[in-house]
Design a protein around this nucleic acid. Structure first.
Lengths: 341, 341
DNA sequence: AAACTTTGTCGAAACGTTTCGCTATTTTGA
DNA sequence: TCAAAATAGCGAAACGTTTCGACAAAGTTT
C-alpha cells in the first residue's frame, strides 16, 4: 500500500484556514492576507504536501499528458533519432508540467491502431514524430485535440510542423565542399516523397546555383525507394556507372552516406582523397566508421523540446498556433571531406 | 477546445436508470436485471461513451500509470536495447490497462534527480531498466511504491528482477562452438561488476567445465572498464598478446565482439576461418557487419512485457511478488562461426 | 453621510465516477 | 408458515481539488 499522503484538508487544518483559502494560496489567486498566506505556506512545508494531480485534472478538465506518436519502424531503428527527439520532449515536459506518453503505431493506418490515449481522451495534445500516415492526424484533429508534427510535414492536414532547416543543411554541405575547392558535387538520396528529403535536394540545388557550380542530372542519384545503408550503396553504384567525374558527394542522410562509402571502396577509390562525402543527421556511427563522416548535425533534442513548447502554448493559452518552425542545423567536419588536390 | 464527451450521467439518463445502476453494469458488479443491463449497454454503444480515466483514478486511488526509469547513457546508445525493452512494456501495458511514463536519470544519484512521477505520486509502480544507482530504488521503496528491475540486479535492495538467463546464454555459445569442433574457446568482456556480465562469464566457465574443455586464465580477457566496441578491441588485443592459440571467442556482448573482430583483422587473421566469434544481445548490427555475427539473442520486448506483467500483478492483486525471473535466450547462428578445420 | 468598490474569508457546489447502505421484493430453507 | 438470504434498484457520500457566491469589514468616491 502506498504511503499515506497529506491533502489540502490537512494543510488547511494545520494552517487554521478554510480549504478554499488554502487553495487560493497554493494557486496564488484571490485575496488572502499576508499573515494567513504565510501560515498556509508553512503548513505545506511542514507536511510535505504535494497536490494530487488526479484531483486537479478532474476539476480542471485537463489530463496533464501529451501523447507522442511515432511509427514502429522509426522508433526501433539502430540509430536513436526519434529516441533523442522524444528525450527532448520529455525534458521540456518537466518544465511545462506535462507527462509525455509514448506509443508506436504501424505506419499503415487502421482505425484499430488509433492510440488508446486518443480514444480515452487521456492526453491534452499530441506530437507526431516523423513520417506517419495522415489518417492518424485526422483522427486526432477530429477529436479537437491540439497537435504538432516533428521532422515531417503532412500533405493535407495543417498543423504546426517543427523541422530542421533541411534546405539550409544541404546548402551548408555544398558550401563546405565548395570552400574545399570542389566543383563537381553530386547528390545521392532516396524516398523522395519524404518532404525532408525533398527539401535537402532543394537545398543542394539552390547552393549549386548560388556558387555557379555544375548542375547536371548525371550528378544526382535519387531513385532508391528508401534512405537506408543499402539504398545509399545502390544510389552510389548508379552514380559511378555514369562516369560523371564527381569529386564529392552530399548524401541525404548518414545511412545513405555510409552505404555510398562502401560502394566507393568497392570501386577501388581511395577515400577521402578520391571523393569527399557529407552525410546528414550526425548519427553516432559518424564517429565510428572509417573515414569518420562529416555530417550536418541535427539537434534532435531541440526538435523535441521546441515541439513540446509550441504544443504547450497551444494547450494552455488556446492561442492560434505558429504555422511552422525551422531549426538551424550545423556542419560537423570530420575526416571524410578534404581539399581537392 | 476538445470535443464534448458523454458521461455516465448521460448513459444513465438514456437508459432510464440511476447512475449507480449504470456503474454496476459498466463494472459488471452487484445485481442488475438482464433487461436493465441491456438498456445500459445499448446506451453506451449509442453514445460512444468512454469512461473518464481521471475520475476513475480519483475514486479508485490508482493513477493507472507505471514509471519506467532508465539511465541517460543507457537509453541514448546507438543500439536500441532499452528502447525495445520499453516497447515491450508499452505493448503489455495496453493489455493491462496501464500507461507507461518513461524518464531518464543520470546514473550518478542526486535527490534532485528523483523523477517527478515519484514525488508527485503519479505512478502506481516502477520499472527500473538496466544498471542504475540503487539510491533511486531506495527512494521508490521508501514511498511504498511497488517496483521491479529489468536486466539488472541491485546489490542490497530486494525487488523482483527480470533478466535474461545470462548463464544459460554463454553456455549455449560454448556448446555451439564445441559442436563445431572447437576446443580452445576464449572469453572476452569488461565491466565485470555488472551482474549480467558476471553471469555470462559464469556460464562460459560452467560450460567449459561441462564439456571438459581447456580452462585456463590465458583464455579469459576481462580487464576493460566497459563493454563498448573499443573495450572489445582492447580486450582482444590482450588476448592476442598472450599467444594462447584460441580458435574461437565468446564475447560478453555484441559491441565487444565487434571490437574484437576489428582487432583480429588488424592482426592479419582470416575471419571466420582463423577464429569463430559469438556475441550476445543480437543487436541489429550483427546482420550488417562482415562476417555477420553469430549472437545470443535476447528477447528484449519479452523482458519488458514480463516486467510489466509481474508489476501489474503486484499492483492489482497486492500479492507477494515473485522473487525473480530468468528468460531463456537462444542462439542465432550466422557467418562468424564455422567448423574447426 | 451614503453609496459603491475593494479586500478578506469561508461554505458549498462541482468535476465524473464508485460503492455503501437503504428499501422493497422474491426466493429458499428450516 | 416464517425467517433468512438473495435479488433488485436507487440516493447520496466520497475521492481531492477549484472556484463561485455570500457575507463582512475597510476604503474610496460622490
Amino acid at each position: 500500500m502506498t504511503k499515506q499522503r497529506f491533502t489540502i484538508k490537512d494543510v488547511a487544518s494545520r494552517a487554521g484556514v478554510a480549504v478554499s483559502t488554502a487553495s487560493l494560496v497554493l494557486n496564488n489567486k484571490g485575496y488572502v492576507s499576508s499573515d494567513l498566506r504565510k501560515k498556509v505556506q508553512l503548513a505545506v512545508e511542514e507536511l510535505g504536501y504535494v497536490p494530487n494531480r488526479t484531483a486537479r485534472s478532474l476539476i480542471n478538465k485537463a489530463t496533464g499528458n501529451i501523447g507522442f506518436i511515432v511509427s514502429e519502424e522509426h522508433f526501433s531503428t539502430a540509430e536513436p533519432f526519434y529516441t533523442r527527439v522524444f528525450l527532448g520532449t520529455e525534458f521540456e515536459a518537466r518544465q511545462q508540467d506535462f507527462y509525455v506518453l509514448l506509443t508506436t503505431v504501424p505506419n499503415k493506418f487502421h482505425s484499430s491502431h488509433i492510440p488508446r490515449f486518443i480514444l480515452e481522451r487521456n492526453v491534452d495534445g499530441v506530437i507526431f514524430a516523423g513520417k506517419i500516415s495522415e489518417a492518424y492526424a485526422k483522427a486526432v484533429i477530429s477529436e479537437n485535440i491540439p497537435s504538432v508534427v516533428v521532422d515531417f510535414e503532412f500533405k493535407q492536414v495543417r498543423i504546426p510542423a517543427i523541422n530542421i532547416d533541411n534546405t539550409r543543411g544541404t546548402a551548408l554541405a555544398v558550401e563546405h565542399l565548395f570552400k574545399l575547392g570542389h566543383k563537381k558535387i553530386a547528390f545521392i538520396g532516396g524516398d523522395m516523397d519524404h518532404p525532408s528529403i525533398r527539401s535537402r535536394l532543394d537545398g543542394y540545388l539552390e547552393a549549386i546555383e548560388r556558387f555557379g557550380l555544375d548542375k547536371c542530372d548525371s550528378l544526382i542519384s535519387t531513385e532508391e525507394p528508401g534512405t537506408g545503408t543499402e539504398d545509399g550503396y545502390q544510389a552510389a553504384k548508379k552514380l559511378l556507372s555514369r562516369k560523371s567525374d564527381f569529386t564529392s558527394v552530399v548524401a541525404c542522410n548518414d545511412a545513405v552516406a555510409i552505404g555510398a562509402i562502401r560502394a566507393f571502396r568497392e570501386n577501388g577509390m581511395n577515400l577521402p582523397d578520391d571523393c569527399s562525402t557529407v552525410g546528414f543527421d550526425d548519427i553516432e556511427l559518424c564517429d565510428n566508421i572509417d573515414p569518420r563522416l562529416t555530417s550536418i548535425s541535427v539537434p534532435k533534442e531541440d526538435l523535441g523540446a521546441t515541439a513540446l513548447r509550441i504544443l504547450s502554448r497551444m494547450i494552455k493559452e488556446k492561442e492560434r498556433p505558429i504555422s511552422s518552425v525551422l531549426i538551424e542545423p550545423r556542419l560537423v567536419a570530420r575526416q571524410s571531406t578534404v581539399s581537392l588536390s
